[in-house]
Design a binder for these strands. Structure first.
Lengths: 195, 195, 195, 195
DNA sequence: TATGAATGAGTATTCATTCAT
DNA sequence: CATGAATGAATACTCATTCAT
């Protein structure tokens, strides 16, 4: 299995660094190879083509992401609490790896529709996780029974995504993690006054 | 003034069609020229370069967008109602021009950071519009006085954007406009139970 | 006759200025038209094409050149003296019109072989003038009877040309005219010691 | 070192042939690649850009030129003799490589001022060589002590250049090499009668 | 005569991928 | 397994010239 060989991970990590530092359109395969300390041709022993590298970057990094989040939400009973630790974790992990934040929020979006669909495939697991939290909330009576799960999930992802992207575009000048409670509150209660 | 000449609009419209049908990276200047029914060189009598076409597409189309929305929200007093007609209009206009929807949600995001920053400039007006609605809501006592305007705006945009993008990625199979009330409700009240 | 109309000369003069200031490859027809104060299309009422402008520049300017030199050498009897005033005049006229000097020495040489052959046609009259001086010198016993007229003419032209070009390339920093006697002496006596 | 690899020289030689046969402005990189028997992209493994090819052509070919001439003049004591073998060699080498003659006398002069300045850099060595001969002649008492070295060099180069160019423009119909003694004599003694 | 908007042919360069060693 | 030299397809932009007004 190629994915367990050391060079596989070397190349993935090199890709994240190169894309973050040079931007997607300036991240040539030869640059990634150089950063990884291998020959250009070697890349093709581990990946089918350049697109495969990018998807693999996303899969490997986001995989850890979702795994970790699954862990922390398992420790909470209430859906609202699960949601909070999810947002906190999401923000914390991207804050901790600024290269990864740039790559996922800005650079990997400059790809064509086809590649974006494949990236969305990877995100499905994350979507399912949120859906599970939402259904759990309905079962517990925390969330309305008629809540549109899909729309709610789109709100949650859209809001987290917009918040992180704005933070990255502002050169990560402020503390993203500190926004988690406020974002959580907005998602639960909206911007309208509760009666 | 070049912007009022008929060929200027011809080329803008041709660009939207060509980008929507071929994707951003396959939207060669010669294809746009052919679609517009002019010679390649004529493009450069109206635009400085290819990037200028793309920004102009966004500016012209989004300009109308914001203008129209300003109009309809002026007809409503309550901030909540303003928000509703804004979302309705946003969804309606993108539903009505499927090419434009593809271009703004998918294709124009494949551009480099520089171009994206210029595109964001255009969006600022839209941001300001939402901020105004939110402050209006606070003044009227509809929204909490301690609402974080910037975060709330990010939630509103992030949610609308994610909703429209999902719809475009699903090949516009369902009725986007019909989702407006549900989205509006989610944004106002969140996914948590009231009371 | 188009050559006598005022716009004909306007365009010729504009071409000299534009070429001198922008270089041959940046001397677009539209720039020349603008400098001449006419529309682009008007150029083609007076000249067949761009090449025709360039040849005409050379013909008009060099024609005056040769005419003037013919005048001044007529006033001298000795071939050596005729040669001296020719060199003096050649240097003086190019010193007086720095734009023309740049155009003839640097810019017009960046043309293709075909155009250069046509330009050489124009120079033939100048060549004939020198040949006449040389033969006159032989008849008077000033120059050796076995002097190879063609080679001698090539030396005279080559030397004057190299001298002027070097001066132009050095940004006309020194007094070209003052070099005439020394050049004249070199051409007459060579660099070898007289016995 | 790329300059010693066989493809480097292949491309240089191909460039000379292509430029001579098609003219400077019709010497596309793809034509040069085809003539050299390599892919277009391969050119850019050995040269930075098209201009770099042209300068390299000049440097490689003229370098040999000057080297060879330095060799032959070292075998002569008298400055006059050195001058003679220099002219002979200059004419002989350009006669032997007609393609090179066309390229250096006609085609490479069609370049812009910037490129020409770089080419002139290469010629400086040749200039220094002539200057050395002239000073040597002064020291030996062959040439006048008050000889203007710079003007004399301009005469020598201008005359050789004009002679070769005329020969090339006349399609190399006559024997250039045979003119060397006559040119040498003219340069040493001028066209005026001695004593 | 004069205009100037419109035309459209033509080309250097990059970079993902291959394959002989 | 690993290398890296070689490949070759693909594209924005300029500007001399025309012709309807």
């Amino acid at each position: 299995m190629k994915r367990n060989k050391p060079k596989y991970k070397q190349i993935i990590d090199a890709a994240v660094v190169v894309i973050a530092e040079n931007g997607y359109h300036q991240a040539q395969v030869s640059k990634i190879a150089k950063q990884a300390g291998v020959a250009d041709g070697t890349i093709y022993l581990y990946f089918q083509n350049k697109e495969d590298i990018l998807i693999s970057v996303f899969r490997e990094k986001m995989g850890l992401f979702v795994e970790k989040i699954e862990e922390v939400i398992a420790g909470k009973d209430a859906a609202a609490e699960k949601l909070l630790v999810m947002i906190e974790n999401h923000f914390k992990r991207l804050s901790a790896d600024q290269h990864l934040a740039i790559v996922t929020q800005l650079e990997l979006r400059q790809t064509n529709k086809e590649l974006r669909l494949k990236i969305n495939e990877v995100l499905k697991e994350y979507f399912l996780l949120v859906d599970k939290i939402l259904r759990h909330g309905q079962e517990r009576g925390e969330f309305p029974a008629d809540l549109d799960i899909r729309l709610a999930r789109q709100m949650i992802f859209g809001t987290m995504d917009e918040t992180v992207t704005t933070w990255v575009m502002n050169e990560q000048k402020y503390n993203l993690e500190a926004l988690a409670p406020a974002v959580h509150n907005l998602l639960l209660n909206g911007c309208g006054l509760k009666s």
